[in-house]
Design a protein around this nucleic acid. Structure first.
Lengths: 213, 213
DNA sequence: ACTCTTTTGAGAGTTACTGTCATTTGACTT
DNA sequence: AAGTCAAATGACAGTAACTCTCAAAAGAGT
């Protein structure tokens, strides 16, 4: 269960958790991964995403192009890889079983976002801008969103006794994630100044209100 | 304003409207376009989307690869090009000005879908299946959806006096389109048997109900 | 120091495009 | 009917994102 690419990665920042007891091999892998990402972000900001070939990223990160593709299956993944879904799932499963589905999902999404905004790094801001501006990244981000919808539907199915492909379950889930997406994009459009959670709250309120304007 | 790729094209079917008064040139263009599409759909069904190179489509359609790319900027566009947005926009603008936004959008989406389902061709069914099954197409389809959101927000902004980037306007719009998307996908999953409009209706009801399950 | 496994880099190949340019082919004029 | 012009086509060269294979390099365990 991959990612929700609109959201930032949980362990993107340098030295996210080097963990004292890792072999040299593992440490090098983390280093390499980070080197590639840093180089990529820098080049993307300087020249733009499309104008930056993978070969150039490889050069800048001092690895071969093969290695880049070994770490990131696609160029998009350099920007979009994160671990949002597992976090979201565990928060959602932790909600009390008698809570109404929408409330549970709402809390899960809010908590998940809060956790992730913990690392409010400059890199994350670049990432959000890239997702907003580069069509290929937007598209892939949407794909990640769709996978999140699938995961959430699975959990909701267990909670409600409905089927995971029940249209109402799916609509609820899709609407919530769409609202989150819009909230984040509006936040980015506004210069990433205010609290994104405030936007998210307003967005979810609209849903609970039955979309009345 | 491109397309909503989950929706089928309005003039995809053969001889959609040859129009009696077209020069030979225009007629040939329509023919070529259709030849490419037909060949592509056939090959996609036989071998799969990814396993079918554009060169092979060109061969099958008796044109050069250059010509294929002249008609369809990307391979994805062979499947996804449609004219849903203009239709949607005109229907939406035609709704009475005092109607609540959600109601107006709801009617527009339903009417739009009805129009489009007029041509319930086999090709359209293949298209829907491709969109469901091929990640690249799903992603692009989502992109089209995002553009539709933009268009609808523009119209709603005029109607309501709010700004087009108002978060509530965007959430309403995004939720409706997400619901439509889910409705269509559930319909496809169910074998495209029943009336898709019934699914759409149920999906939109969930939204108006405030996402209560 | 010596295996053994994992990681890396080098290189070749595929495919989706992009851009250019000469040729062809309708469209229109005389 | 012939001639001119603009649009459409095809051939070709080039770029960039991957994919695959294989041999060299580098940790890990003995």
């Amino acid at each position: 269960m991959p990612d929700n690419a609109v959201m930032a990665s949980a362990q993107t920042s340098p030295a996210a958790k080097p963990g004292p007891r890792l072999g040299l091999r593992e440490r090098k892998k983390i280093q390499t991964r980070q080197a590639i990402r840093s180089a990529a972000y820098r080049l993307f900001e300087e020249q733009g995403y499309d104008a930056t070939p993978v070969d150039q990223i490889a050069d800048a990160a001092d690895v071969s192009p093969s290695t880049v593709f070994r770490y990131f299956p696609t160029k998009e993944d350099i920007v979009l890889t994160d671990e949002y879904d597992p976090l979201l799932e565990s928060v959602l499963r932790g909600r009390p079983a008698d809570e109404p589905p929408l409330t549970a999902v709402r809390h899960a999404v809010v908590d998940g976002l809060r956790h992730i905004l913990g690392d409010d790094t400059p890199e994350m801001r670049v990432r959000m801008r890239l997702i907003r501006d580069v069509p290929a990244l937007r598209a892939r981000s949407g794909e990640g969103m769709a996978e999140s919808v699938g995961m959430i539907c699975g959990v909701l199915a267990e909670r409600t006794g409905r089927r995971a492909d029940d249209i109402e379950v799916r609509v609820v889930t899709a609407a919530v994630l769409a609202a989150m997406q819009e909230a984040l994009m509006v936040w980015v459009d506004g210069g990433q100044k205010d609290d994104p959670l405030a936007y998210l709250g307003r967005a979810l309120d609209v849903l609970e209100r039955g979309l009345t304007l």
